[in-house]
């Protein structure tokens, strides 16, 4: 589904991404972990085609086609979508207007939240009529991202810290939506997270560790990876991970 070869990015003569290779198969769930400022968010913004990072080098293939030079909107049309960690506020534009514009789902189905846990968990959906991300709470921002993603009917979704700032109950709710509406429908998922909680629900088949712009290790057992990181921290666990977990690669 997604194949990345030797992805590099330099900014102000500093190497941000140092030649990343990654492959995610159809319906596969992978996680990307790493310390702050290791380049995770930049990496996924490059994959999704953010014009801010158009100087990136390397090759990105999606569904067998090279998309490295494609505009972000064309990548979305092919089914590759990114959920932002910190989506910007857009004054004046109602969230419901954006949903109507982008949705591939008939408008009657836009109220899909009624059938999901969002409703059951009593999340206030009044923000649909508010301006995009203007004065949204942390939870509302995440629900907004999730609703947009679902309305785009993607083939692959990258979630950049969809769980950050959420309490455990909401992490569970978000995870259940991702599982029910995406993973169970064979949509591939790459999830960046700092907390292991969401991984307990999503059970990724592979975990990638990124440090200083490079994927230094991959492991298949997310529980063991989380345990090692918890015990040693990212930097110190590097050699433990490489020694132990990378055998799974």
């Amino acid at each position: 589904m997604l194949k990345i070869k030797n992805l590099k990015l330099k900014k102000d003569n500093k190497e941000i991404l140092k030649g990343i290779d990654l492959e995610i198969k159809k319906g596969e769930v992978q996680a990307l972990l790493g310390p702050n400022a290791s380049g995770k968010s930049t990496f996924v913004q490059v994959i999704a085609g953010n014009p801010k990072f158009k100087s990136a080098e390397g090759k990105i293939f999606f569904n067998g086609k090279e998309i490295s030079k494609l505009s972000p909107e064309k990548r979305v049309k092919m089914g590759l979508v990114l959920s932002w960690q910190n989506p910007p506020a857009i004054k004046g534009v109602k969230f419901s207007n954006l949903l109507k514009k982008i949705s591939k789902v008939p408008s009657s189905h836009l109220k899909l939240s009624k059938n999901t846990k969002i409703k059951k968990q009593s999340v206030n959906l009044n923000f649909l009529n508010r301006e995009i991300n203007v004065d949204f709470s942390g939870g509302e921002k995440k629900i907004s991202e999730l609703l947009q993603i679902l309305s785009l009917k993607p083939k692959m979704v990258i979630f950049d810290e969809i769980d950050s700032g959420l309490d455990l109950k909401k992490v569970e709710m978000v995870a259940e939506i991702i599982k029910k509406d995406l993973i169970d429908k064979k949509v591939s998922v790459l999830i960046i997270t700092h907390s292991g909680e969401i991984l307990k629900f999503l059970k990724p088949q592979k975990v990638n560790i990124m440090i200083a712009g490079k994927i230094v290790c991959q492991g298949k057992d997310y529980r063991q990876v989380l345990k090692t990181i918890k015990k040693y921290g990212y930097e110190k666990c590097k050699k433990h991970l490489q020694a132990g977990l990378c055998a799974n690669r």
């Binding site: 999704a48 014009p51 801010k52 909107e73 979305v76 910007p88 857009i90 004046g92 534009v93």
Partner: peptide
């Protein structure tokens, strides 16, 4: 630029994104 890129990463063309922001404004 960030707002524009965000909307483009939701599948809108640059023109559609500008129109949406302008109409909202």
């Amino acid at each position: 630029e960030e707002e524009l890129n965000y909307l483009r990463m939701r599948g809108l063309t640059e023109k559609q994104a500008i129109d949406l922001i302008v109409n909202g404004f």
